[in-house]
Nucleic acid binder design. Structure first.
Length: 457
DNA sequence: GTAGCCATACCATGGTCACA
DNA sequence: TGTGACCATGGTATGGCTAC
């Protein structure tokens, strides 16, 4: 159950400094829905009202707070979904993370200590000033330089020891923090050792190992497979995305009753009267058992894990009706898992879909040239249609995907991929993502072949 | 003396924690 | 269980500190 806000800072005192800015090593908290909204809205507000800028953060936050309250429910829900995904990503990136706010007493003690330090410095400054004044007077009346030097300075006149420099060896201009971009580059961006061992682990050392890694290092395909996002190890055939209209045509026989592990069945290889042997089906009910799946029939391991429908609810400009090119192979990442599970929970339909333009009384082959390659045979008596794929097309595409994955790949690329996907999430249908669902998706993610670490959730 | 780095303060809302 | 506090984000101003 989400906690309700019970208090609000009204003291006028500032919050602690942004951790991401002040301490590169500290793991930042996951962003909540409002913070994500604020980030987006500040940019758009600046575009809408350039005459009001530069504007201080205080007034801008007030304005955005008001706008947030006035936003329709679906917009807020979109950001809540996005926050849920960010939370899931955060759990994957920092499996052992736990929020530890500094107790008030400790904070105040620290503040007191800082104030005392400041007072000491001021005192030393004053002493130096007094010393200079004394010296000047002595010099003005001195007959010789040795006389002008005056007495040996006392302890209070000795300069305060300088603390060790915090300056790094980075060239100037590289540490202009404060922009969102700074988080994905430089020291703030966790990177990996080139050996392929990803420094994510469920223990508390993960933080230091992440921060000590070298940015902008390139990684081979094996390393890439170990990255949390995208999940290359479970590359699988793309299935057209269902829309809300599709749900009503879904086959009753494959509706999932509840959210559990049975939502993640193996992809079934089989055949049907309409498609060639070897096509992949998302559900056993849709494929005859003529062919069985296995390493021989599935050399690329495409049937290893089937996580559900990739969440491509956003129209693909390249193809009508969201249809990807035949044989397109996409990696499935955590976002996909969360979406698929959420969709399953909300609609009870996880696996069956047909193109949005398809209606039951129209023959699939009459609809779209794309269907020359795609085939959507009736799955059962209810007329529900299930997607299948021509594996003669899929396998070469999978080959290409594997080749791409073997290319040198920077962590920055992977992070960009995640960020780009997250940016589109607000367009998802209005469905709340429960924390249970997120946790479940994360657990499934870590159970995936190719992901080396177990989470300690 | 100055350039550059860093921390802090300002503000909003929501999630999370410790404590009574 | 309720409450209060911290902290996540953004850009700018300001001041302290260090290196040159």
């Amino acid at each position: 159950m989400p906690a309700t806000r019970t208090s609000k800072r009204t003291t006028g005192k500032a919050s602690a400094p942004t951790a991401a800015k002040s301490k590169a090593k500290k793991i930042p908290r996951p962003e909540n829905s409002f913070i994500l909204y604020r980030k987006d809205r500040a940019l758009s507000y600046k575009e809408e009202h350039p005459e009001l800028f530069p504007m201080k953060i205080g007034p801008l936050s007030k304005i955005i707070g008001l706008l947030w309250k006035e936003e329709p429910a679906d917009v807020r829900l979109g950001y809540e979904n996005l926050a849920a995904v960010k939370l899931a990503e955060h759990k994957v990136m920092y499996p052992g993370y736990k929020y530890h706010p500094t107790p008030k007493a400790q904070k105040e003690a620290k503040k007191k200590e800082a104030a005392a330090r400041k007072a000491r410095v001021e005192e030393a400054k004053a002493a130096r000033a007094a010393s200079r004044a004394t010296s000047a007077r002595a010099w003005s009346t001195a007959k010789t330089p040795s006389e002008a030097a005056g007495p040996v300075p006392g302890p209070s006149q000795v300069a305060v020891p300088r603390r060790k420099s915090r300056r790094t060896s980075a060239p100037s201009g590289t540490s202009t923090a404060g922009t969102s971009g700074a988080k994905t580059q430089g020291a703030a961006a966790p990177a990996l050792p080139g050996t392929g061992m990803f420094a994510l682990s469920p223990d508390s050392d993960a933080e230091s190992r992440l921060s000590s890694a070298t940015p902008s290092q390139e990684f081979d395909g094996e390393t890439l497979r170990r990255l949390p996002f995208p999940l290359q190890a479970t590359a699988t055939a793309f299935v057209p995305t269902p829309t809300s209209d599709d749900v009503q045509y879904a086959a009753p026989s494959i509706q999932a009753p509840a959210l559990d592990a049975s939502f993640l069945p193996e992809l079934v290889q089989g055949s049907s009267p309409q498609v060639p042997d070897g096509a992949f089906f998302p559900n056993p009910a849709m494929a005859s058992p003529a062919l069985s799946s296995g390493p021989d029939s599935d050399p690329l391991g495409l049937s290893r894990v089937w996580y559900g429908l990739p969440p491509r609810d956003i129209p693909d400009p390249a193809f009508p009706a969201h249809l990807p090119p035949a044989g397109l192979v996409e990696p499935i990442d955590l976002q996909d898992v969360v979406f698929a599970l959420n969709n399953a929970q909300q609609t009870g339909v996880a696996w069956v879909a047909h193109p949005p333009q398809m209606v039951p009384d129209v023959a699939p082959s009459a609809l779209n040239p794309v269907l020359d390659t795609y085939d959507y045979p009736p799955a059962n008596e209810s007329g529900a249609l299930g997607p299948t794929m021509d594996m003669a097309e899929v396998h070469p595409a999978a080959d290409q995907s594997a080749a791409d994955a073997s290319d040198a790949f920077t962590l920055e690329d992977a992070l960009d991929h995640v960020a780009a996907e997250a940016d589109t999430l607000w367009e998802l249908p209005s469905m709340p993502l429960s924390m249970e669902l997120v946790d479940f998706a994360v657990e499934r993610f870590f159970a995936t072949p190719g992901v080396p670490m177990e989470p300690s959730l």
